[in-house]
Simulated scan of single mutants.
Amino acid sequence: MKTNKKGMTLVECIIAMAVFAIATTGFTMVATTCMKAQAKASRRMTATNNQTTNLEHFSSYSKVLDPEYCNVKPMSTGINKFKMTFDFGTVKVENDDIYGYRSVLDPSSPDGVFELSFFSAAEQVDLAEGEYWITLYNNSSSQHTWDINCAVPGDSQVFEFFNNEHDNSIQQALPRHIWAPNGGYMKFGFKQRTPGVGDLSSCLQITDVDANPPVTYHVGLSSDNLISEDKNYCAIYFDDGEFKSAKKFEEDHKDPDE
């Protein structure tokens, strides 16, 4: 009996290796493309989540606003102010204190195609030298009524208040206002009439008229005092019976496990 011991020829081996190489190359290219697509999708999702978080911070003022960091720009030119109407059938509510914004990721980023448009009650204020935009929070569990003025002893009327439209008719005292407990806040502008002139170490006088007798606090805007400045946007928190900077407030409420 004869046995066929014939194997693969050299040509057949070369052909088989070529086919295997082509198949492997194709698989590798497909796998590489899938990995790149997955990485791009992950980057885009991360960027979108970060941008959403920034917009939440912008809208709620839970952190000091930095428009450049959030890439937030007015939705339109001019005063960028819109009027919104809410029709509840028998009652129609109008709000003409709404601002429109658009948020775009870094244009230099390959994921810069994302653009979000939104409305917010938060207004952007262009600040010049010597001007400060302040958000004052009441983080205590009780309501407070505060009178705020800048007519501190020794002040030769070098300071004044202004609103988001830079109207300084309020002058050296703000209207009496009630701050709700657990996060009630108010925003206002404060400036040196002449940039660089005036002591910022205790330039705000805040009087708690609910206390008996009323209690007066002297709050400063200097960087080594109570308020941490970032492009002249400032946040003050009333917490544990004292006024604190955003930095000190966050430190006092930091999770010890972090």
Rank of each mutant, 00 (worst) to 15 (best):
T194Y: 05
Q192H: 07
V152C: 03
V125R: 00
G78R: 03
T207N: 05
C70I: 08
P214G: 14
S62F: 11
V19M: 15
A121G: 08
C203K: 11
T53M: 07
A246Q: 13
F190L: 12
T48N: 10
K187N: 10
T52Y: 07
L221A: 12
Y99Q: 03
N164K: 00
F238S: 02
N149F: 07
E250L: 11
I98K: 08
Y233C: 01
M186P: 03
N95D: 08
K247N: 10
S120W: 14
W133P: 04
H253Q: 07
S156R: 05
H57S: 05
D210A: 14
G241D: 10
V30Q: 02
W146E: 00
A47T: 12
Q51A: 15
V91A: 11
V64H: 03
R102T: 13
A18Q: 07
N50W: 05
A18V: 12
G26Y: 09
G89Y: 03
L200S: 06
A39Q: 07
S142K: 10
G78Y: 02
T52P: 00
A151Q: 13
L127P: 06
S117E: 09
E12N: 10
S59K: 14
F162K: 00
S142D: 05
S117W: 15
K2G: 00
S42T: 14
V11P: 00
I15R: 07
Y137F: 15
G198L: 04
E229H: 04
K254Y: 02
T85N: 06
S245E: 11
E165H: 03
N95V: 10
F161L: 11
L226W: 15
Y61Q: 00
W133N: 02
P256D: 03
F58D: 01
V30P: 00
D167Q: 02
A121H: 15
I134Y: 05
N232F: 03
G183Y: 09
M29W: 06
V125K: 02
E56L: 14
D224P: 01
S156Q: 03
P181R: 13
G189Y: 11
A39E: 05
E68C: 06
Y132W: 00
N139T: 13
M17N: 02
Y61E: 00
K247L: 13
S156H: 06
V72M: 01
C234D: 00
L55W: 06
T52N: 05
D210S: 10
Y237R: 04
D255S: 10
S223N: 07
N95T: 02
S142I: 15
M45E: 14
K73E: 13
M8Q: 07
T48A: 15
E129F: 08
S140V: 08
